[in-house]
Amino acid sequence: MDLLHLIALLAALLSAGLMAGLFTGYSYSVMPGLKILDDRAWVAALQHINRVIINGRFMTGFLGSVAFSLAAVVLGCFLDDRSALPWTIAGLVLNLVSFIGTMAKNVPLNDRLEAAGDPAALADPAALRTEVEEPWIKWNHVRGTANLLALAALAWALYTTGLAA
């Protein structure tokens, strides 16, 4: 059981780290870099990114951050030493904040961009950008911060197991 818990905890830590890196990377580089684009080019860029990001590598980290954290919590409940459990639960909750925020906020905004169709045919690309850009960036900051905090909580959980020493 200890080995399975350790594997789940490490997988949760790694997937939270992948998501923290991706989402915070968007916050400090991708979105500021795209800001210089005109409205049509901005819509086109986001549409393209949203299409290509749905792949196995992304989904493994995105879904894994929650699934592996949940597995680590469940397995941690069966350990004699449960000192890591509060930190593992915190990591799970924070990964859930990111997951739920993504599904409730960022994905609908991505869907709105996709539903707009060909950026070259948009009558008012500036209105679409105004509708999507600020809330998308705001919720991206939330999910990136949540995953970063999840990473810290899971790292502390690993440390408290004594296996990291």
Rank of each mutant, 00 (worst) to 15 (best):
residue 25 G to W: 11
residue 39 D to M: 08
residue 30 V to L: 15
residue 22 L to M: 14
residue 149 L to R: 03
residue 101 G to L: 00
residue 161 T to L: 03
residue 5 H to V: 03
residue 33 G to A: 09
residue 106 N to H: 01
residue 93 V to R: 06
residue 25 G to S: 13
residue 39 D to E: 15
residue 114 E to N: 10
residue 21 G to D: 08
residue 68 F to C: 11
residue 18 L to K: 07
residue 30 V to T: 13
residue 163 L to Q: 09
residue 71 A to V: 12
residue 48 H to C: 08
residue 130 T to G: 10
residue 16 A to V: 02
residue 48 H to S: 14
residue 88 T to Q: 13
residue 26 Y to G: 09
residue 161 T to F: 00
residue 46 L to S: 06
residue 118 D to W: 08
residue 136 W to D: 06
residue 45 A to E: 04
residue 124 D to E: 13
residue 64 G to Y: 04
residue 133 E to N: 14
residue 23 F to T: 07
residue 66 V to Q: 04
residue 77 C to Q: 13
residue 145 T to L: 15
residue 132 V to S: 11
residue 46 L to E: 07
residue 145 T to S: 15
residue 56 G to V: 10
residue 159 Y to T: 05
residue 21 G to F: 07
residue 37 L to E: 08
residue 150 A to K: 02
residue 134 E to V: 08
residue 25 G to K: 09
residue 105 K to R: 14
residue 3 L to I: 13
residue 108 P to H: 03
residue 118 D to G: 07
residue 12 A to S: 12
residue 157 A to C: 04
residue 129 R to P: 11
residue 16 A to I: 01
residue 100 I to H: 06
residue 25 G to D: 09
residue 82 R to L: 09
residue 69 S to E: 09
residue 11 A to Q: 01
residue 75 L to P: 05
residue 56 G to N: 13
residue 38 D to H: 05
residue 65 S to Q: 14
residue 110 N to A: 00
residue 63 L to S: 10
residue 40 R to L: 03
residue 135 P to F: 14
residue 156 W to Y: 15
residue 78 F to P: 08
residue 19 M to K: 02
residue 38 D to Y: 06
residue 90 A to P: 06
residue 3 L to Q: 12
residue 13 L to K: 01
